[in-house]
């Protein structure tokens, strides 16, 4: 392995990781928003929206992100909807992540005992107050392991962005290998940069998880 080669490639990888993190960040934010919305719809059993949410979840959980991205990037322009490659990436990540987040939050919501709901109602709270003050915070802390797993999954899935020619880590590596055939160096950098991106999430996730568990159960 040639250290000089690695040194020359570093700026390219720095740019790539910034792009990946930026798109990942917005995608995850969108996923959170959709997840929250989806879980509210399911919790309050809002009639029509509930069916739509169920279909959405099944469609996006059971098709690969690659296929979804192709659809957004290549098929939508055919019916006159044109969006930039970056927006496509964010949208795709947001939609698949939203489906996963909804499911994770839903199982968290279901794990909260019904009588917690009743004890809050007995204090005169409305259903909305019960949800936002009592049920959601507890469901959220129960869901943290699942949410962290989703975050890591989504950040890894950004590697698919390379297929719609976004200069992410994956694309940069493939490109460099194609041009200069420094395969070992590029793959080495690729692994290292993914770790740089994901290890902090994983570690931070574990810490938050532990703190939330402690607040909730004391162990």
């Amino acid at each position: 392995m040639d250290v000089e080669v690695i040194k020359t490639y570093l700026p390219l990888y720095n740019e790539a990781i910034l792009l990946t993190v930026r798109l990942g960040w917005f995608g995850i934010l969108a996923a959170f928003g959709i997840g929250l919305l989806g879980s509210v719809i399911q919790y309050f059993r809002i009639p029509v929206l509930r069916k739509i949410a169920a279909v959405y979840i099944e469609v996006f959980r059971n098709t690969p992100l690659l296929v979804q991205l192709f659809f957004i990037y290549f098929a939508l322009p055919k019916i006159g909807i044109k969006i930039s490659a970056e927006s496509c990436g964010i949208l795709g990540l947001g939609l698949i992540g939203g489906a996963y987040m909804t499911e994770t939050l839903r199982s968290g919501l279901e794990s909260i005992d019904k009588i917690q709901h009743e004890s809050a109602l007995s204090l005169g709270m409305t259903k909305r107050q019960v949800f936002f003050y009592i049920i959601l915070p507890q469901a959220f802390s129960v869901s943290i392991p699942g949410i962290v797993a989703n975050l890591i999954f989504l950040l890894k899935e950004t590697s698919v962005f390379s297929t719609i020619s976004l200069m992410d880590l994956m694309f940069t590596s493939k490109d460099l290998i194609g041009m200069y055939a420094k395969t070992i160096e590029c793959l080495f950098l690729l692994v290292i940069y993914y770790l740089i991106m994901l290890l902090p999430v994983s570690v931070l996730g574990t810490i938050i998880e532990r703190r939330a568990r402690y607040a909730q159960f004391g162990d």
Binding site: I115, E118, S119, L121, S122, L123, Y133, A215, Q216
Partner: peptide
């Protein structure tokens, strides 16, 4: 329901809130 206080067998305090927060929330 505000006129009717209820106390449950398994307390049903809100585990994510402190004692004082449990009491002043409503």
């Amino acid at each position: 329901r505000q006129k009717i206080g209820m106390v449950f067998q398994y307390y049903e305090l809100f585990p994510h809130k402190t004692v004082i927060e449990n009491i002043i929330l409503s």
